[in-house]
Amino acid sequence: MSVIKKLVSLLRGSVREIGESVVDANATRIYEQEILDAKSSIDQAKRELAGVMAKEIQTARAMERLQAEILRYESLAVEALNKGQESLAEEVAGKVAELDQEHTEQTNAHAAFAVQVGKLKALIKNAEAKIREHEREISVARTTESVYRATSSISDNIASTGSRLSTARESLERIKKRHEDLADRMTAADSLDKEFGHRALEEKLNAAGIGDNADRQRKIMARIRTRAEGGTTPRAGDEPAA
């Protein structure tokens, strides 16, 4: 059964069980052993493959060589016949028959090696697929178990500290409210800073006798005195004569 099929059937059951074992420990061990076996059989097959491929090449070379020999001896036999050397031609034909026999043997061997190469390549491919499949299964199983175990630790922790008994909606409201509070506080702080910051500065300037407000009272009194003495009436705001 595929690991995801197994998960789907487990998901219909209890959550506990998923955390405990998607693939039981025994099955995981079997998978791990099968992965090891598959890896060593790949190593062996690769070594064998190199040997068999070398033999395949050797037989092909022998076939070429024999084919060339056959052609050469056949030509010699033709030559012998043309010169009326019937018995010599017969002898050469015997040699060609020998070479032909050898060629057939090499051809058969070559075909057998080719088949073996194909088999070894298929074996390696299957073993590699098996490793990939088992590794994926183990990985899915372990990840699932790890996620469910982590969630169960987190739930236990939440329950024991009582840190989140509220619903998602309440949490959201609190976070939003905190953001609004923060934004409000920042606006308030901003306007306070403007107001008090400005006033504080003015007060310092007054205290130092700098600016329009510095000695307003003295200036006004001086203007009043000027008027009382019957002098010209200065417009408000004009500098009185010192």
Binding site: S146, I175, L182
Partner: peptide
């Protein structure tokens, strides 16, 4: 400011998983 929505980080052989419970 987001204490209600902690993130949990866990791992297995294959991956690191960051989760937030909704």
């Amino acid at each position: 400011e987001r204490d209600e929505l902690p993130i949990f980080i866990t791992c297995s052989d294959a991956q690191i998983l960051c989760m937030c419970f909704l």
